[in-house]
């Protein structure tokens, strides 16, 4: 049985807009416009799309914060909008932008309260806390009030808080937003292990394609409230015809590089930018380059997610 099921789920908001000094116009915004998908237990799925595409609205409906305007939605067989508090025992939620911890209290106090609030058996609580403290490097932070934590520290604290009661599914809304490289790596490694060892289902929204690449086999793309793509990440690149960029530093200024497998985007002194399809490995291209040109340095730039989606969207509507 599928753990998460959405069938033609809709969320329509009434928005009032000021059109004159006193006049207001009411119109409807379809934030989520008939989305259907299922997620089996233990899967790790990326849920991506540009700002305002409907990602957060979906998460809010999955967690029971918002009531859908239409369609059918079940998580672990429960209708979130009807049995919010019962579902809460079985899910963990991390909002990247705001903390679920108590702002003015030390991290430890928040955990202690979670312990009682979720009625977590003592040994389970102790075991889960110890594990999170170790893997997320929280030992030094337990006595620090949450407001004094850095963004990365707070995020790790929040992830631990969401996992103390052994949730069956973890929703992460932009878990790496604003984090430094080291914090990002820590968070990603932890999530990978969580999914592998515990079989926790993970659904994460993100702006950062690297999150998806390193964590999720499956990715869903949403735009204007509709599901645009559901499948493997590699497939997304094919559908979107997205390209990666190879930045090549040569020993000296040379005319534009001429290779069959890539096209030159621009030349600036000894530095040149080459574009090649994202679905193809960079290795043969690099080998061909090294054979024919005096290389100093190379780096690969991932395609911009917004660009991929924009391209995909343009194609669909064409």
């Amino acid at each position: 049985m599928d753990f998460i099921e959405l069938d033609q789920v809709e969320k329509v908001f009434d928005v009032r807009r000021r059109t004159g000094r006193l006049r207001r116009e009411k119109h409807q915004v379809r934030a989520v416009d008939g989305i259907s998908f299922t997620v089996p237990r233990g899967e790790m799925v990326g849920y991506i799309g540009p700002n305002g595409a409907g990602k957060s609205t979906t998460i809010k409906m999955l967690t029971g914060i918002l009531t859908p305007s239409g369609g059918r939605l079940r998580v672990a067989g429960i209708d979130p909008s009807k049995e919010r508090t019962r579902l809460a025992q079985r899910i963990g939620v991390v909002f990247g932008q705001r903390t679920t911890l108590w702002w003015d209290l030390p991290l430890r106090d928040s955990y202690r309260l979670m312990h009682r609030m979720y009625r977590i058996p003592d040994p389970v609580f102790r075991q889960n806390l110890d594990r999170c403290v170790e893997l997320l490097d929280l030992a030094e932070l337990l006595e620090v009030p949450v407001r004094q934590l850095s963004l990365g520290q707070r995020m790790r604290g929040d992830i631990a808080a969401a996992l103390l009661h052994d949730p069956e599914v973890l929703y992460l809304d932009e878990p790496t937003i604003g984090l430094d490289v080291i914090s990002k790596a820590k968070v990603r490694r932890f999530l990978r292990e969580l999914n592998a060892e515990r079989g926790t289902t993970v659904l994460l929204t993100t702006h950062d394609l690297t999150d998806i690449e390193q964590l999720c086999k499956r990715v869903m793309v949403i735009d204007h409230g509709r599901l645009m793509y559901d499948g493997a990440l590699a497939g997304l690149h094919e559908v979107g015809e997205s390209e990666r960029t190879l930045v090549v530093d040569l020993e000296r200024e040379l005319p534009p590089i001429d290779l069959e497998s890539a096209r030159t985007l621009k030349v600036e002194g000894p530095r040149q930018w080459l574009a090649f399809p994202a679905s193809v490995s960079a290795a043969p291209l690099v080998a061909a380059l090294a054979e024919r040109y005096p290389l100093v340095d190379l780096s690969v730039r991932e395609p911009d997610i917004e660009a991929v989606i924009a391209k995909m969207y343009a194609e669909r509507s064409a």
């Binding site: 967690t63 508090t85 809460a88 899910i91 909002f95 932008q97």
Partner: peptide, 14 residues
């Protein structure tokens, strides 16, 4: 206004 009400809605308590 600041959206922190959402964090209360995901806990198993009224």
């Amino acid at each position: 206004r600041d959206g922190t009400l959402d964090t209360l809605l995901v806990r198993p308590v009224p």
